[in-house]
Design a binder for these strands. Sequence first.
DNA 1: AATGCGGGGTA
DNA 2: TACCCAGCATT
Length: 354
Amino acid sequence: MNFSKLLIDWYLSNQRELPWRKTKNPYYIWLSEIMLQQTRVAQGLPYYLRFTEEFPTVFDLAEASEEKVLKLWQGLGYYSRARNLHFTAKYVAEELKGEFPNTYKELKKLKGVGDYTASAIASICFNEPVAVVDGNVYRVLSRVFGIDTPIHSTEGIKEFKALAEKLIDKEQPSAYNQAIMEFGALHCKPKNPYCISCPFQQNCEAFQQGKINELPIKLKKTKVLTKYFNYLVLLKGDQTIIQQRKGNGIWRNLYQFPLVESDKNLAEADFLTHPEVKKLLQEDFKKVNLFNKKSIKHVLSHRKLMVKFWLVQVEEFPEAFSHNDFETISTADIHSYPVPVLIEKFIENFNFTK
DNA sequence: AATGCGGGGTA
DNA sequence: TACCCAGCATT
């Protein structure tokens, strides 16, 4: 079986028309690849269009503030990608005079660029025969070649990478890499793949052995932790208080309302007696009422958040909020801050201007 | 070698 | 629901 030829033939007649397929400019390819890490094309596409519109060159991206980059990234998730993107843009613009590295080895040194992304850029932009291995590749190869090694085990990572390197068309690595990913995304799908019209049907181990639904083998399921979030939405005329998240946890550098975590769901009576809440508010408020009676369930890949927004009307902001961590802002300006989708949805629902 | 990190589409 | 998406950094 000529695997790469069948694959590229399929690709030439089935590929989608996508904006980053019209260029080999490494800046645009890099941008698209970072955005598409663990992200579907349909979800990333509008962000790609906005970023290329707003930042036509790596210099434009480098000169922007991190806050602006995060704001434009808002809703795409995995925000470390945006911070690394900005860091690398500054590095390329300032240290490399705007010229991206042109080999796999050098590309991989860039922050936010791992094995997959370095391979993608090197092959697409510079014709280097290095094979990409993403979720699509694991699925296609495990099925066609009947490989039951767990894909994210140390052994699996090496085995699939080696096989991909063996299969790549060294004359057209760009077409091969994009072909196998496109084939996985459109044809050899996780559920209900189109085996009936598959060019590999005769050669596909999984199909021949009826193992399509068992491959690829994955090991671990990430356990989802439940947490209880209480946001304090302080209201003083048209002013409120926000804070920027610090540390290494979720939503780093994004903004939110002052947050109190609790170990369980808080009823209205519990809220005012919670030690952290008492510490923040003292007695310095007029009225507290709960915005959402039922907790909002916000599910992330590794976490389930049960969230309540508490509206706190004050004459003056309590002393605790004069700390550096907090910023007093006009509610009219709240839309300019990068926030998690959870907060954005609240802002949309709660009309600050009324 | 294992874990943390978002949000949304799909069946 | 559960799964998975053009993965990477950190420990």
